[in-house]
Design a protein around this nucleic acid. Structure first.
Lengths: 211, 211
DNA sequence: AACTGTGAAGTTTTTCACAGCC
DNA sequence: GGCTGTGAAAAACTTCACAGTT
C-alpha cells in the first residue's frame, strides 16, 4: 500500500513510530525525563524487544543501563517522521465531521495546522467554522497550489471522494487522510490512509459473544 | 468442510474482513452481482491470493471459474463478523467529535445503532444532539446495564479517557473505540481500538519529501 | 543491577503455482 | 478461457537471548 521507505525500513515499523511519539509525549507530561523500552511497551502493549528493534533502525537513541532520554527521543522521532516542522493541511468537506476536524485543537503540537476548509455546497461557502471561512471547491486547486499544501483530510460523502481526491492530487496534494468509507485509487507517489470507525467496530464485534 | 473454529484465525485476517465487506457493498450498489478476488483486490490494493486465502478460512464462498456471488458473500461476512444483527452503541463525550459521531448516518446499514450519548459537563446535559438528548455520566452505568450495551465510542478529553473506560467496562461494555489520543489499559476480555488522525498523518509525512 | 542493540531463531503472513472446476 | 482453494515456498515480522555498556 504505502511506498517503501528510502532506507528499506518496513512500513509497519513506521506505523508504530507515531504511537511511540504519542506515548513519549504523555510520559513527558507526567514529568518523566527518562524511560525504558519496558515502560513504553507496557503502556502500548507492545513487547520491549519490538520497541528496541524498531528504534534501532534509526540509530542508537538509548543508553545501555539507563534507557531513553524522553526529550531526546521525541526530538529524534519527530525528525524521522518529519513532524519537527508544521505541515499545512486542507480540510475538504464542511459537514459535521469537517466541522469537528476544523475545531480540533490536537493538531498543532503534533506537527500539523489546518490551513483552510472547502466545501462544494453553496449554502456552506462563506460560513464560519471555528477560525476558518468555508471556501468554494472551485478555488481549492488554486489555494492548494498557492499555499503549497501537500496534505488533505477528506470528509466528503463517499460518492464524491474519488473525484475530490483526483482534484487534490492534480493540485499537488501528496497525502490524503480519507474519512469516507470507500477505497480510492491514487498514484504510487501519493500516500493514502483511511479512517472509518465502522471497520473498527466490525473488527471488534467478531470477538464479542452475543448475549 | 464447513466453517472452521474461529479461534485460530489470525487477527490480521479479521481486520481485513470489514474492508472486504465495505468494498462488496459498494460493488453491489454499482449494480454488480458477481465479483472475483482479482476485482476486489484491485479495488482494495490487496493481492487476489490474499483475499482468497482470507476467505477460505471460513469456508468455500466462491465458485471456480465464476467468482463470488456478492450478495451471498456479504451475508456470510456479516455472519462471521456478527454484524447481521444490530448492536447498540453508547457515545461518551458530546463535544464536536461526539456531535459528529451522533449525527453520522453511516452506522445503521453496517450493524450499529447509536443508543445514547453521555457527557460529564452539566452545561451539555439535557441538550439535543441529533436525535439524542445528552445524558449525565452519573446515569451512564445504569443505562448501559439496562440496555445491555456492549460497545462504546469514547470521545472525551485524553485525561479522562482511562477513568471513563474503567466505568464503561465496570458497567458491562466489552468493546471500546477510543478517539482520545492516549493508550488505555483494559482487561483481556475487553476489545479496544483507536482512532487518532494524527498518527495517520505522521505515518504519511514520513514518506513526503519536504519542499 | 539495569538496560540497550542485535544477530539468530522462531513465528506469522504473504505469495506462488497449480490442481480442479465452471 | 476464467476462476477458486490450497499446500508449499518465500518473505516479513517478532521474539529470544545475550554481549556489551552505564
Amino acid at each position: 500500500m504505502s511506498a517503501k521507505s528510502p532506507d528499506n525500513i518496513p512500513d509497519i515499523v513506521i506505523g508504530r513510530l507515531p504511537l511511540y511519539l504519542r506515548a513519549l509525549t504523555r510520559l513527558q507530561q507526567e514529568g518523566k525525563d527518562v524511560t525504558s523500552s519496558h515502560e513504553l511497551g507496557k503502556r502500548l502493549d507492545i513487547s520491549s524487544a519490538q520497541i528496541r528493534k524498531d528504534l534501532s533502525h534509526f540509530g542508537g537513541f538509548g543508553k545501555q543501563g539507563t534507557g531513553y532520554q524522553i526529550e531526546f527521543l521525541i526530538e529524534k522521532l519527530q525528525q524521522v517522521l518529519q513532524v519537527n516542522t508544521e505541515w499545512s493541511v486542507a480540510v475538504v468537506g464542511a459537514g459535521n465531521l469537517g466541522n469537528a476536524i476544523a475545531h480540533y485543537r490536537g493538531f498543532h503540537y503534533r506537527g500539523f495546522r489546518i490551513a483552510c476548509v472547502f466545501d462544494a455546497d453553496p449554502n456552506k461557502i462563506g460560513k464560519s467554522i471555528g477560525d476558518f471561512t468555508v471556501q468554494s471547491q472551485e478555488t481549492m486547486a488554486e489555494q492548494i497550489k498557492e499555499q503549497n499544501i501537500k496534505i488533505a483530510m477528506l470528509a466528503v460523502p463517499a460518492e464524491y471522494a474519488q473525484e475530490v481526491a483526483d482534484k487534490l492530487i492534480e493540485a499537488g496534494v501528496r497525502a490524503i487522510l480519507n474519512y469516507a468509507p470507500i477505497n480510492i485509487i491514487v498514484p504510487d507517489n501519493v500516500q493514502i490512509q483511511y479512517i472509518d470507525p465502522v471497520t473498527h467496530l466490525q473488527h471488534m464485534t467478531y470477538y464479542l459473544s452475543q448475549d
